[in-house]
């Protein structure tokens, strides 16, 4: 897929990007607060959206509030531009905002993502919007909202390490592989959304603004550009990213997050990049390189 320009025009009867301006103002205020307090979950009045909870309503509301006609939008789901969710959300914004969309990471000004961070390093003029199911990193250990709010307010994060301790005791290593808790700017502990822990290092000192929206839970949080984001660990069990034994079967990359694809019912499988755009770009560059070699 390529970059499309504004097509048939915005659908009649809808405000730009679906939400009314007052709502956008409310959400922008929440976003500003979130940026001012990195990692802190700001409550917001999440609206009824034309997709059910659990389908990215938080991310959509954040994107809708920051979108301008000059923006170019990319939507990915688990790294791919062509899954049902990514396609639906892209269509939604085409219909209600009539903004250009793209699959190329370097051409986008806003990237909405579900559960992955693009492999290419993002720039200062880009915004990454994450879809978040459960924003509270302490929720599974402490079900009381009153308690978790206090714990964040008082920086009482011992419980977070209890979870990691249990992992090591049970599995010999920290078994959490996604939604791995991080400490933002040395103050708030945050759930980075269900991105694989492989992506955690990308969040640290990212030049782009990172915004997180949880529609059902009604929370927005943010990591401003160039902010310290550190994954929690123990001194004697430091944080480690996943590694694969094989490179990507399509582009040969050894440093990207790989999906496992089952090829047939005889157990053959291949590993390929989860970030489809990055993989394609690399393949293209390799082809161009080959063509150059052949030509010379």
């Amino acid at each position: 897929m390529t970059t499309t320009s504004a097509q048939s025009g915005q659908a009649k009867g809808y405000n730009f990007a679906y939400l009314n301006e007052q709502t956008k103002r409310m959400i922008r205020r929440a976003i500003l607060k979130a940026i001012a307090i990195p990692g802190y979950q700001v409550p917001f009045a999440s609206r009824e959206m034309p997709m059910p909870y659990g389908w990215g309503t938080g991310g959509v509301q954040v994107t809708a509030s920051i979108l301008t006609p000059e923006d170019t939008l990319k939507v990915i789901d688990q790294g791919a531009d062509d899954t049902t969710n990514a396609v639906s959300i892209r269509k939604f914004f085409t219909k209600t905002a009539n903004v250009p969309t793209t699959t190329h990471t370097e051409d986008a000004s806003i990237i909405q993502t579900r559960h992955r961070i693009p492999e290419q390093t993002l720039r200062e003029d880009q915004v990454l919007v994450y879809q978040v199911p459960i924003p509270e990193p302490l929720r599974f250990l402490e079900p009381r909202e009153t308690e978790t709010r206090k714990m964040h307010a008082l920086s009482e994060y011992g419980l977070m390490h209890v979870k990691l301790y249990e992992d090591i005791a049970r599995h010999g290593h920290i078994a959490t592989t996604y939604a791995y808790p991080v400490s933002v700017s040395g103050r708030y502990v945050m759930d980075p959304s269900p991105t694989p822990k492989f992506d955690n290092p990308k969040m640290d000192q990212m030049p782009a603004l990172q915004l997180f929206g949880a529609g059902r839970e009604k929370r927005i949080y943010a990591v401003p550009p160039y902010t310290e984001v550190k994954s929690l660990d123990f001194e004697d069990h430091p944080f480690e990213v996943q590694k694969w034994s094989e490179p990507c079967a399509l582009c040969g990359a050894r440093d990207t997050f790989l999906d496992e694809v089952v090829l047939d019912d005889e157990g053959r499988r291949m590993f390929c990049c989860s970030d489809t755009d990055a993989c394609e770009a690399r393949q293209k560059a390799q082809k161009a390189g080959q063509a150059l070699d052949e030509a010379s």
Binding site: L141, E156, Y157, G158, L159, H161, V162, Y165, E166, I168, A169, R170, D233, F234, E235, D236, H237
Partner: peptide, 27 residues
């Protein structure tokens, strides 16, 4: 007690809460 975490985690929690970050020592 925290009934859903192990005995070791129960005892270690206070240590982790005051900043202990060495798994071996906590254990």
């Amino acid at each position: 007690l925290r009934m859903s975490v192990s005995a070791g985690a129960n005892i270690g929690e206070r240590l982790m809460a005051i900043g202990d970050r060495h798994y071996g020592n906590i254990r």
